[in-house]
């Protein structure tokens, strides 16, 4: 896997306020990198720095081997992006807007324009003026614009914003295809965890301008407890119950402080296992009061946990 985007010790202030603090990470070809953070975390700011709209204060950004500061045109010719809302020349047709980009980037045949229009499903409306497009249609045109010149790095700021469910699914498929089949490095920002889960291979979590951690998506999914089931058992003697169960399942199980027992099983074996636990406890002569299934910790909770807890003020 080739390193496409490399960010080293990026710091950025806007006005007197430092928005981004010493951020470093890389994205690779063939991977969809998710960029996750609450409102005001600095996602858009980071993306603006990467696409050259903002200059960085300290640090270095390299796109496909080109230093953004020194080889601007080289770096940018490997980049396709949508920053915030996709804005186009409203008095031009969608097609003419794409022609504008084709002219700026150079060497893009007409067939490629038709191809990306087909990819984003806008064939029927592409000759219309953009002023008459809906938000979702503009978002699709934005994607078409971003991938027009076969960029090696694709940066999309909240691309699903305004898309209908079918549109979201289409976009997801397009991005996954680009990454996994054509080897594009895709970087998407979002504050929706579930969206990340469905399209990203790795996720970077940003809060208050600091990159907190980078995880493979599987890690986050397991942290969220997806694929496991948890049960709570109340009974007359929790201490003894825990001992019997430890023996029966061959793992150490401790009673909770409030006199109950928590059990976690892989999803596939959950029913069989809880039946076994019940039987074991009854055999040991203990009186069971209740056996209840605990709700899964949701992805959002993990997200809030990762980004610094509940009820936080926008920083």
């Amino acid at each position: 896997m080739e390193e496409i985007l490399k960010i080293e010790h990026l710091t950025k202030s806007l006005g007197a306020k430092e928005i981004l603090h010493d951020i470093s990470f890389e994205t690779y070809s063939g991977e969809v990198f998710g960029f996750l953070g609450p409102n005001g975390a600095g996602k858009t700011t980071l993306i603006k720095v990467v696409v050259g709209l903002l200059t960085l204060d300290h640090g270095r950004i390299t796109i496909a081997g080109n230093d953004l500061a020194k080889q601007f045109e080289g770096a940018l010719s490997n980049l396709g992006a949508i920053v915030e809302n996709p804005e186009f020349y409203r008095y031009l047709s969608g097609y003419d807007n794409l022609v504008q980009y084709a002219n700026m980037r150079g060497g893009i045949p007409k067939e490629r324009i038709d191809e990306v229009v087909r990819m984003v499903g806008l064939e029927n409306r592409i000759k219309e003026k953009v002023g008459r497009y809906s938000l979702g249609m503009r978002q699709r045109l934005g994607v078409a614009q971003a991938i027009l010149h076969h960029p090696r790095l694709l940066v999309l700021d909240e691309p699903t914003n305004g898309l209908d469910p079918a549109g979201i699914k289409d976009l997801r498929d397009v991005l996954k295809d680009l990454a996994h089949k054509e080897g594009v490095a895709v970087m998407v920002s979002s504050h929706l965890m579930s969206e990340m889960e469905m399209m990203c291979d790795r996720v970077g979590v940003i809060a208050n301008g600091t990159l907190i951690s980078v995880h493979p998506i599987a890690e986050l999914v397991s942290a969220a407890g997806i694929g496991r089931e948890e049960f709570v058992i109340t009974l007359d003697d929790a201490k003894k119950g825990a001992e019997v169960l430890s023996e029966a399942f061959g793992i150490e199980i401790l009673p909770t402080e409030d006199g109950a027992i928590d059990l976690v099983f892989p999803k596939e074996e959950a029913l069989a296992s809880i039946a076994k636990a019940n039987e074991t406890l009854v055999r040991a002569g203990l009186s069971l009061y209740t056996v209840s299934k605990k709700e899964n910790k949701r992805l959002e909770d993990v997200f809030i946990e990762l980004t610094g807890g509940e009820g936080q003020q926008i920083g």
């Binding site: 696409v51 050259g52 920053v83 804005e87 020349y89 980009y101 700026m104 980037r105």
Partner: peptide, 14 residues
């Protein structure tokens, strides 16, 4: 004012 400046400037033209 149209917000198109962002899309103009993310092209490989100084």
């Amino acid at each position: 004012s149209a917000g198109t400046i962002k899309f103009l400037l993310i092209n490989p033209a100084r």
